[in-house]
Design a protein around this nucleic acid. Structure first.
Lengths: 218, 218
DNA sequence: CCGTTTTCGTTGAAAATTCAACATAAAATA
DNA sequence: TATTTTATGTTGAATTTTCAACGAAAACGG
């Protein structure tokens, strides 16, 4: 477990907790590590899990697929980020989404109850951990607000521009997005070919330039 | 403040806290009460607020309006429910939504920092309060998942059916929704007239019956 | 109780999306 | 490196949505 401490230092969930405390805390919390290959299911729709996942390395997507085969990407999970925290906290019986590895992933799991209820061992930094989880949950809500802000627009063009503007607000006018074209279409809830056409049009109009997943707003 | 205790007993945010403790806690937290008339702005887009709102009576909507005049309803806030908790927790500088009273509202405000950081007076139930706020934030995330699940569908018909199925899962096959037609359209992010047409069609097909905001799935 | 305002359902035309199919470019793999 | 697979861009037809306009019904207010 020790070798993961360096990684966890970068994780907002453990912010403000020193290495020694973290090391002891992980034992107390019963943290487990699992690894997954590309395209592996980390969690799947319909299951129940009270565990919070922490992405140590790799990247995964939170998706939902309806019976017509339309895939909706709720979000991406990158290194140091947390997932399943809301469903674990709310003790959801049936997970409404699947979590699929985009690439080989290393994930730490912690039972949410162990985070929420301070243990008898009296870990000093437990309050900090709870506070961090709270912030994380708040940020998750804001992320969804952003997705809804983009997808609520009525045309593909407006959805795309709304999304790119949100990215630009965070990263500056040149930025990379965590999606390829199909994934961006699934995130924005539009047709891929229509999205490609719209990107071309915006390029010709001189609104943006792009190379793969690297965009610049002009 | 005392007269609000009976109301707050029903509020999940204060679950597990007895009346006496709650009464003392409210003073300690610096709770304030404000009232609003119909259509009044409780909070407006662009402002910053570190306060959590608790709806004591009345109902409000969380909305966003883009520069083409399209209104998007993120959610409704009814009695005993909490709002602005995510933005307050995350210390957002500029609120991306407005909160508008549907009808006369009575709201309690509490500074989020006072909830997050236990005070020197050592209120016994403060941990419970933090725990409750965490659950609330988790539920908020799940509510957004539900909205996205419905709005991610590609046709008005599918969006409507997805939404009604989510309602039915919670309340049974006959239920009322908190929206009128225009509001439902704004929540589902579709055109009102198209939504009305779709409801008529479903009625003729014998899929559902409805009277105003009361629906039955058959 | 009546007049006014708001909500709701209906319609047809214009605009946009989706869908299917294909060509090309890029990436992965043997 | 050659081959295969995947990703991307392009197009036109079919479907769906949006928009504007209208009448009827319901809710509201005096």
């Amino acid at each position: 477990m020790e070798k993961y401490i360096k990684i966890l230092e970068n994780c907002p969930l453990f912010e403000g907790i020193d290495d020694d405390s973290l090391s002891r805390m992980l034992v107390c919390l019963g943290a487990k590590i699992k690894t997954y290959g590309k395209k592996a299911m980390i969690m799947s729709e319909g299951m129940a899990s009270g565990e919070v996942g922490i992405m140590l390395s790799g990247r995964a997507q939170i998706t939902q697929t309806d019976y017509y085969g339309n895939r909706n990407i709720f979000s991406k999970v990158g290194p140091y980020e947390v997932f399943n925290e809301a469903f674990a906290c709310a003790q959801t019986k049936s997970l409404p989404v699947s979590i699929v590895a985009d690439e080989p992933c290393c994930v730490m799991f912690i039972d949410c109850d162990h985070i929420l209820h301070t243990c008898s061992n009296n870990c000093g930094f437990h309050q900090q951990l709870i506070y961090n989880l709270m912030k994380d949950l708040a940020m998750k809500t804001i992320r969804f607000h952003e997705k809804i802000e983009a997808t609520s627009k009525r045309t593909t063009r407006e959805k795309l521009l709304a999304y790119l503007n949100i990215c630009a607000k965070k990263q500056g006018n040149t930025f990379s997005i965590p999606f390829d074209r199909q994934e961006l279409a699934d995130y924005l809830e539009v047709d891929r070919s229509g999205l490609s056409a719209e990107i071309s049009k915006l390029r010709k109009e001189g609104v943006l330039t792009c190379r793969k997943n690297q965009f610049s707003l002009l």
